[in-house]
Structure formats: structure tokens, C-alpha cells
Simulated assay, not measured.
Amino acid sequence: MSSDTVSFGYSEVAPEEKTRMVGDVFAKVAKRYDIMNDAMSGGLHRLWKDQFVARVKPRQGEHILDMAGGTGDIAFRMARKGAEITVADINPNMLAVGMERANKKAIEGLLWAEENAEALSFADKAFDAYTIAFGIRNVTDIPKALSEAHRVLKRGGRFYCLEFSTTTWPGFKEVYDTYSHKLVPRLGKLIADDEDSYRYLVESIRRFPDMPTFKAMIGEAGFVNAKVEPILGGLVAIHSGWKI
């Protein structure tokens, strides 16, 4: 792989091209994103998100940045705990869906911001916690995004990431590989009329660093006490770290 390229699924593209192409993917899938999450995970993504927010432990009056917050699933859960949430996403289509959902659910007080995870507009030490769920693998420069997460957190702030990873359960990995490569794109075609976008999303999971590698990247960004909590043997994982 050339140092001048980054992965877009199984392809190698220029960094600026990946940013544009990922933007195109999420612009296409925004309207059907939540329906597809239910279809692809059998509804399990809801339990994973509940578990994730339970680990974050949002508290009354805390300022939390939910990066790649898109349609609001994580933000809504944290807002119910009394935290003050800024929902940030690079994709305005995803934010629009999230704001529409918030209105329908009568969830008020959320701040919505179009932001690039690699170059946040927020001041240093602005947040008590930073969350990102199923978004970090779509970032063009992951170390830069982790560095930005560290910068905008207060001392004692916490970083939490929920992301697909690589399951270590014998046998299950092969079953999941077959399901994701063969069936998920077909579901994308059937439900969202977009097979290619969902093929990219599956491939992006395969290209994402495994649990020990991503844990090390969190430490390299300046976080301490980096941890990883596997779910379903690492099919999904909660990574965390603290800023001191």
C-alpha cells in the first residue's frame, strides 16, 4: 500500500478522494440507515448501543461530544441521562435525519454541528466525554481524529468508541464473513436500493484495525488506561481511554 493512499473498502484511493466517497455513501444511505441497521444486526445494534452508553455513564450537566452522531441513536440515549450533548457529523444528510428524528421524539436541547473528526472547530478542553459509535472506521486519518478527540477533552475526560472489529470466536468468524459479504449487500439492494454502499460498509469493517492494534492507537494519541471490551468475541468492541 502506498503511503499516499488510504483504504476505501478493499480499494486504495487518495485521502481526499476517500473523504468525498465516504460522504457520497452516507448521503445515499441516510434515509434508510436505521432500518438497515435493524435488518443487518437483527436489532442487536440497539443492545450494543445500550451497553455502550452504560459504559460511558453520562451524568447530569456533563458536556459530551457525540462524533459521527448522525441519526442520533447514541445522543438520544445520553440526553435522557441529563447530559448536554453536541451531535457532530461530517455528513449534513445524516444530521438532517437525526434532527428530524429528535423532533418526532420531542427530544430537545441537543446541539447539532457539521464537523470533520480530523479538524474539529471546538476549543481545547471543551468536553467531559467524547463518544463515537460505528464512525471511526470511516474517518480518513484515524490517528488525527484520535488526536482531536484528546485535544477537545478536559483533563479527566473520557473517550469511548463503539465499532465493529474482528471476532475471535472459532467458527463464528467464518459464518459472519459469509453473511456479511454475501447477504448484507443484497439486503442493501432490497431495502435501500443501494448494494454498492453496503458492500463498502462491509469491506470497511474488514480493513479496520483489530482490537489490540486500535487499543494501541488510542494510547499513542495520548490516552491512558486504554481498554477494550469485546462483544460477541470481538465482532463489535467498546474501546475506551482517559485524558489526564
Score class of each variant (00 low, 15 high):
F208G: 05
E220C: 10
P209W: 08
P209Q: 11
V228T: 12
F208H: 05
E203A: 13
E203T: 06
K215L: 12
E229W: 15
K227W: 11
N225W: 07
K227S: 15
I231D: 02
R207G: 04
G219I: 13
P212E: 00
P230S: 00
R207V: 02
A226R: 03
V228D: 07
G222C: 03
R206Y: 12
N225E: 14
K227T: 15
S204T: 07
R207K: 13
A221V: 00
F208S: 03
P212Q: 05
K215C: 14
V224W: 07
A216T: 14
G233T: 00
A226T: 15
F223C: 13
A221P: 01
F208D: 00
A226I: 04
R206S: 12
M217G: 10
K227D: 10
I231L: 14
I218G: 05
G233N: 00
V224D: 06
I231M: 15
I231S: 05
E203I: 04
V228H: 05
E229R: 06
I218Y: 10
G219C: 10
P212D: 00
V224C: 06
I231Q: 08
E229P: 01
L232V: 14
P209I: 12
T213K: 11
R207Q: 09
E203K: 07
P230E: 02
V224H: 09
T213E: 08
G222W: 02
T213G: 05
G219W: 11
P230K: 02
F223Q: 13
S204E: 05
N225Y: 06
I231Y: 11
D210Q: 10
V202A: 04
L232C: 10
A226M: 08
F214E: 00
F214A: 07
G219M: 10
D210M: 07
I231F: 15
G219N: 13
F223Y: 14
S204P: 06
N225P: 00
A216Y: 06
K227Q: 15
M217R: 15
G222Y: 00
E220W: 09
F208R: 05
A216N: 10
I218H: 06
P230D: 01
F214Q: 05
I231N: 03
G222P: 02
R207S: 12
P230C: 02
A221M: 06
E203M: 04
S204F: 01
I205F: 04
P212A: 08
P209F: 12
V228M: 10
R207E: 08
E229F: 12
G222Q: 00
S204K: 03
F208I: 08
I205L: 05
A221F: 01
F214W: 06
F214K: 04
E220L: 12
T213M: 07
P212R: 03
